[in-house]
Design a protein around this nucleic acid. Sequence first.
DNA 1: TTAGGGTTAG
Length: 588
Amino acid sequence: MALNSSAFFVPCHNYNQICDLLLSSARTRSTSKGLQLHGYIVKSGLSLIPLVANNLINFYSKSQLPFDSRRAFEDSPQKSATTWSSIISCFAQNELPWMSLEFLRKMMAGNLRPDDHVLPSATKSCGILSRCDIGRSVHCLSKKTGYDADVFVGSSLVDMYAKCGDIVNARNVFDEMPLRNVVTWSGMMYGYAQMGENEEALWLFKEALFENLAVNDYSFSTVLCVCANSTLLELGRQIQGLCVKSSFDSSSFVGSSLVSLYSKCGVLEGAYKVFDEVPLKNLGIWNAMLKACAQHSHTQEVIELFKRMKLSGIKPNFITFLNLLNACSHAGLVEEGRYYFDLMKKSRIEPTDKHYASLVDMLGRAGKLEEALEVITTMPIDPTESVWGALLTSCTIHKNTELAAFAADKVFELGPVSSGMHISLSNAYAADGRFEDAAKARKLLRDRGEKKETGLSWVEERNKVHTFAAGERRHERSNEIYEKLAELGEEMEKAGYVADTSFVLREVDRDEKNQTIRYHSERLAIAFGLITFPADRPIRVMKNLRVCGDCHNAIKFMSMCTGRVIIVRDNNRFHRFEDGKCSCNDYW
DNA sequence: TTAGGGTTAG
């Protein structure tokens, strides 16, 4: 008998066929057909057959109805290891990790030994919960039962340790496995990427290729993410070539990593091209593209993209709204930002501290300091360092020293703060005439043995990254770089550039303060680009800290005097300088 | 194949 849809309504006594139908209902997401089948199964007494009962559990699990799955489990007449395995995996896959572990306990209390199907699900649950301690017990259990040599069990353990941030144990399991596959390797790469150990992740990828492992979309999206985070554009492009060759470039996961790679490396056109070419776009790739446009001040495109995204039936999540809010805040679009914030709440997405920080940043930068403060005092969750920090930054921009000092007090009340924040705190107190507090803020930083992050800028040339710090002369082409800057400096002055040295006294960190403002790291990196790259190639510079106001002005003159496009990424967005103008419209 | 492990966007 053919398994067509009419078969659902025809009485059928072949339980193997019923099982097939349940499975196909789950696969095609035809929940209603599955429910009809369940009714028929109960009526005809087929639910007493263990195989049918197990299939029901699996059907509900795949249909994302874990509690119906549980009911089917309870109704099941004979609970074999397979039955337990089905329900434990159901909870692990349907966001009920605790229940999954509870059922593992129940299974063992009934003197049933967990097998090679149960252990990976239980391990996965520990990973979801970030509970390394429970994970270790499951690991021990795997060893005791001898299943630790199984490639599924081992891979799930690698992933669990990686998710818990225990990279040492992840690597130990990885090294001890007698047999590894692409899942094991991808999991290990992901672990390194999570910990920011980018070089290790890249090494592992290289080793995998060397071992002729058939890498896939999972491996590609992870390794491309590493390239994006290290702004390794050329390597990323080479890996993209491998994706194209193996047809994994059509995956939306690989696509979102590629969009992020191009965006983070300053090549917005590249991000657009990847985005347009991915046939089926998931939420991740829409968010990646929204973020790319927001970072590059393509605000109108952000708004248009969001409309297109909704038209294509994709539901926005909290990341989508964070991107929208950041885009509005970067461009000073207060009304639009407010609209998206309300829309988010209407969509029943709870704003996080990051959303509030973005809202405060948007209002504060636009000079609406009182409103920004009101947002903080009325928000339903506790304001974090980033929220008060956004107000503090805005107060500094608008020279409201009193409110800045108040915000600084609030940040201090929260306890230990990040190292970058100390300088802002100290500056805020100093500006308000509270010099003792200013000294205290700096002293706290010193006492904790922390140093402010050194300002660094870097440029990628072929497969090499050239890094510069303010005023240093360690680069092999330093003489030419400084000559270029001197020569360009004269041209810039003729064009009307006047150095604003007030930035040396304010907001610039100590390491850079000792250097003359002319030799901030980004200027060295740009000069290197000028003497190295062909005239038609944009100069892309990455910086770990914010660009100072004088450099921002100077780079505008640089772009005008040289006729070059200069793209600078500071710690959170891009500035594209062309013909003496910047894409941020001086609002940053 | 009645049941198991891994990825993107922040």
